[in-house]
Design a protein around this nucleic acid. Structure first.
Lengths: 335, 335
DNA sequence: TTGTATGCGTTATCAC
DNA sequence: GTGATAACGCATACAA
């Protein structure tokens, strides 16, 4: 069988406890001892048994990504970043899909009954789901949020999405667009508010009157983008540009335009948000805002792990955006 | 703290061991006892502690998805299916990304040193990676494969991809295409061979001479599809249709065609393979072959779990395909 | 600063 | 068919 902590202790000529101290970076151990133990660990290729560790230490050395109906791309990116952070820290990652209905309480309870992760990373819209948050807080489980609506007293990571949209809209306006449509995201997401807010503020700054007819609801899905575009393009005075609140919806706009015989960007400019792979894979390639999603997953996990180790630690971080001008935007056609 | 097996034993008036037997479906326990234990379990809402189980039972009750540079969509689907199967069986899922270089041996060793999953699911191209397979076999770890090149003596799930391509190509040929190009996948994937083979067989059946100039290499990536299309469309006698070995490459073909001012499907028919979301999100929507990827992940996991429980169990399953005719294919333009 | 003894919750061994 | 008891490998009061 594999080496145990006892074997390491024997090889180093110290007690189990000393080995344990060294392995867990505890204080009160002389440098010399530490050295000796580390050598023995190396030599025996010792790896602690996670089950024994968990059992004795009342910790699972794992964190859960708890999610609920997000886009696959987004999820994949977050997951990738979390995996990286977990791997580097010797933690394990659980995936916990929750349903959208009332049963999510039972599901998250089951998660904790079965595996008891030491902490949780939440992504929208669960970052602002009262039921889930109450459960976590009441149970005293550390959690980090990615792009939560309400960031006060939270740890995790977010982006100044409003400013990002302001930058993007400025480009559109500079090109000469004045009738700009917007397809919103679902209201449960903070992102929907921030992006909508950026849209409105940009118009205001440019002295363009806000026209409610140019704003339609969406669901962050391709289909809802297509529908939204159809609604906007059927207007008596259709917009010359459409800012969809995410890339999937923007792809839907591109399709709707194509089906109507409109050429993008000649007849219509389109932009999205997120810089998901689809933004480069459709034609024309989407002008969009890059969000370092994977990095955000990594950072949120790191903050979570910090808090798990000490209740004082953990911050709410901010990451930078970048406006990516590609092929889907151009000056409006002269009338 | 939570209830222990001891509490259940006390509540049921039996010994710990009997409870354990009931919980693990072991034989040698009277129906009446079983009933009594189950009632106590219900009443106390008892859930076994996974760490203690693993420690004492020398099992981790977890399986790993071991992968290496596949498409994000594919990975996500497989993962989703595996998650479902794991959840239903009380197993846990580990994600184990491996690098492409020589270090993957060390990485998979680390996986086992650290977590020791009870079994592994492999996806292409790792399904046929000698280094990985040798490690697994030598160590005696049960594993299931999805779409392996060499299915003999393996368990897992696959699809008759050659027949699927035959069906797809028949549609193209029926439309009147006779110069059909093909962008291959990387040779490490069985899928590349099968799809290429289906392409050739379809031509042969239709009495169309195979022209090597119409076949170009690809890497299953969007960019490689775009490059392949550019190569094919630059030919003196360019094809009237292109069959790309997967959807991502087909999307690249669509883009290449658009940049060259070609209208799809009027000037060029395009089809892909996999039915990933992008096939519906680009314009025109791709004619492709649906592969029940998520279901395949689920099935492979189930077979793996069967084998984990008994070395005799576990089969190599086959799933059905479906040809999805969408907007990217039509009759060739008359010359 | 270092070591000893006990417990974590389950499975496995071996009697009965 | 059932039950007492010893592992499993590590952490942690507590003692030295």
């Amino acid at each position: 069988m594999r080496n145990r902590i006892e074997d390491v202790a024997a090889a180093a000529g110290v007690s189990m406890k000393t080995v344990s101290r060294v392995l867990n970076n505890e204080p009160n151990v002389r440098a010399e001892m530490r050295e000796r133990v580390m050598r023995a660990v190396e030599k025996l290729q010792y790896k602690p048994n996670p089950s024994a560790r968990s059992l004795a230490g009342h910790r699972s050395y794992s964190v859960a990504l708890v999610y609920n109906n997000p886009s696959r791309n987004y999820l994949m990116e977050i997951q990738g970043g979390m995996l990286e952070a977990c791997h580097d820290s010797g933690y394990n990652l659980f995936l916990s899909p929750l349903s959208t209905g009332k049963e999510k309480v039972a599901e998250i309870q089951t998660l904790f009954r079965n595996f008891g992760p030491d902490g949780v990373v939440l992504i929208p819209p669960l970052t602002d789901d009262k039921v889930v948050l109450d459960f976590l807080e009441q149970r005293g489980v550390p959690f980090a949020c990615i792009a939560p609506k309400h960031a006060a007293d939270r740890i995790g990571v977010g982006m100044d999405e409003t400013t990002a949209v302001l930058d993007l809209m400025a480009q559109l306006i500079k090109l000469g667009h004045r009738r700009i449509g917007h397809i919103k995201g679902p209201s449960a997401h903070g992102a929907s508010q921030w992006r909508y807010s950026g849209y409105k503020q940009a118009l205001q700054r440019a002295g363009i009157e806000y026209d409610p007819a140019l704003v339609v609801p969406g669901a962050f899905s391709f289909d809802s983008g297509e529908q939204g575009a159809n609604a906007l393009l059927a207007l008596k005075h259709p917009p010359t540009a459409i800012f969809a609140a995410n890339d999937d919806m923007a792809a839907g706009v591109i399709r709707a335009a194509a089906l109507r015989g409109l050429s993008v960007p000649r007849d219509l400019s389109v932009c999205g948000f997120d810089d998901t792979p689809i933004s480069r894979h459709i034609h024309p390639a989407l002008t969009t805002i890059r969000q370092p999603t994977s990095e955000m997953g990594r950072m949120a996990t790191l903050e979570l792990l910090a808090r798990i180790k000490s209740p004082e630690a953990g911050r709410m971080l901010r990451v930078d955006h970048a406006v990516l001008i590609r092929e889907s935007t151009a000056a409006p056609r002269r009338r």
